[in-house]
Amino acid sequence: MIAAEACSLAGMLDQLRPHVPAALISDAAWTRVQGMAGQVPAALPRVVGLECRLAHDARTDLALGLEPAGGALLAGGGSWVAPGTPEHPVWERIRSFCRPRGAGSGLTAEETLSIWLEFDDVGDAAEGPVSLPVPGIFIEIAPALRGEAARTACLAFVTRVIGELAGEHAVASLSAPLRHCFSALPSGACVPGFGFFPGRAASAVRVNVSCPDAARLVLYLQAVGWPGEANVLRSTLAEAARARGRTGCDAPEQIHFDLAPHVLPRLGLEYFLARTPQANGTLVEARFLDALVSRGLCTPGKRAALHAWPGTSLTAFAHTLWVSRVRRLVHHLKLVCEGGIPVEAKAYLGIYQV
């Protein structure tokens, strides 16, 4: 086995390329993903994610899900230092956040389920070698902070992390809107995660909300000041529920909106897919994909490619001692909505070593 930190993620992904349908991720997009992955140690992520647009946009973003060992490597416990744009302050903030410092600071298992770094594919605008972009940062909140009794503690955690990762200026502008977002949550709803994109032009905090009832979800969005059309969103939610074989009151597993500091019009509706059948190579959400194709949000070729992606394989990676069992899943589909109208569909592919 080669030293784990000497093996890049690109080498690991190269071994999985035969499982990646070209209709879903083109050769050009794969080359760009590999350009970013080649600057990341294979030992860093717990999960590798690939974000694919399902219409004619070929861009594919790279996402890394970190567990404590990967967080320690990123924090400087190993020899790797983030390349590409190390002078950007976000890298030092991420490293500082991942350093163990005890309760009430940084990355703790009691508060944080995982941290995700997302690297945007700039598409054909890339010239020459692909540099590692400044990442988007997402925090999955630990289940203990998602209950109704823990909302005050959860809000305090979110506010603290925004200060650590985005700076106190972000806290100053977002603390009041965030309090309103938490106080307006209906019974049974929670904030399972949040994130932001320091490398993008627009400065905003993304808030994820889980609310199982579609009617209460729409009322919540109205209460926090979402400027879209409520009736249009109700129709979109009902149509998606029917395509999934659900009742009209069922909501997506999660939605997200951006605070800047007001709620922006764009929403993300995240629909999680059944995992167990995918271990045997079966994607059971065929009706949902068919509906996306009929709406022009997914090409027929990418629909077929999504069905070909799930499965399990045994692979010997250079950075691991033993043969790894690798599961390939479509974790969720996302409808991006403007004013409640779906304008784009994305698939989030997961690569898990189990």
Score class of each variant (00 low, 15 high):
325 R>G: 14
294 S>P: 01
156 A>H: 10
165 L>Q: 09
232 V>L: 11
91 W>V: 00
111 E>Q: 14
225 G>W: 08
173 S>K: 11
260 A>V: 02
47 V>D: 09
4 A>C: 09
48 V>M: 08
244 R>D: 07
95 R>I: 02
319 H>G: 03
121 D>T: 06
163 G>T: 06
200 R>W: 02
330 V>I: 11
39 Q>N: 06
48 V>P: 03
166 A>I: 02
144 A>I: 06
41 P>L: 05
36 M>A: 09
16 L>T: 07
313 S>D: 09
53 R>D: 11
180 H>D: 06
137 I>E: 00
336 V>R: 13
344 E>L: 13
107 L>G: 01
344 E>R: 15
340 G>H: 10
228 G>N: 09
17 R>L: 12
11 G>L: 01
329 L>P: 04
256 H>P: 02
262 H>D: 12
99 R>I: 00
266 R>D: 09
72 A>R: 15
74 L>D: 01
198 P>I: 00
42 A>Q: 05
92 E>K: 14
314 L>Q: 15
307 H>V: 06
54 L>E: 02
197 F>D: 09
276 T>F: 03
25 I>H: 10
69 A>P: 07
146 R>W: 04
310 P>R: 13
202 A>P: 01
231 N>I: 00
199 G>P: 03
228 G>C: 09
185 L>Q: 10
10 A>D: 06
43 A>Q: 09
36 M>E: 00
44 L>C: 07
76 G>R: 14
239 E>A: 15
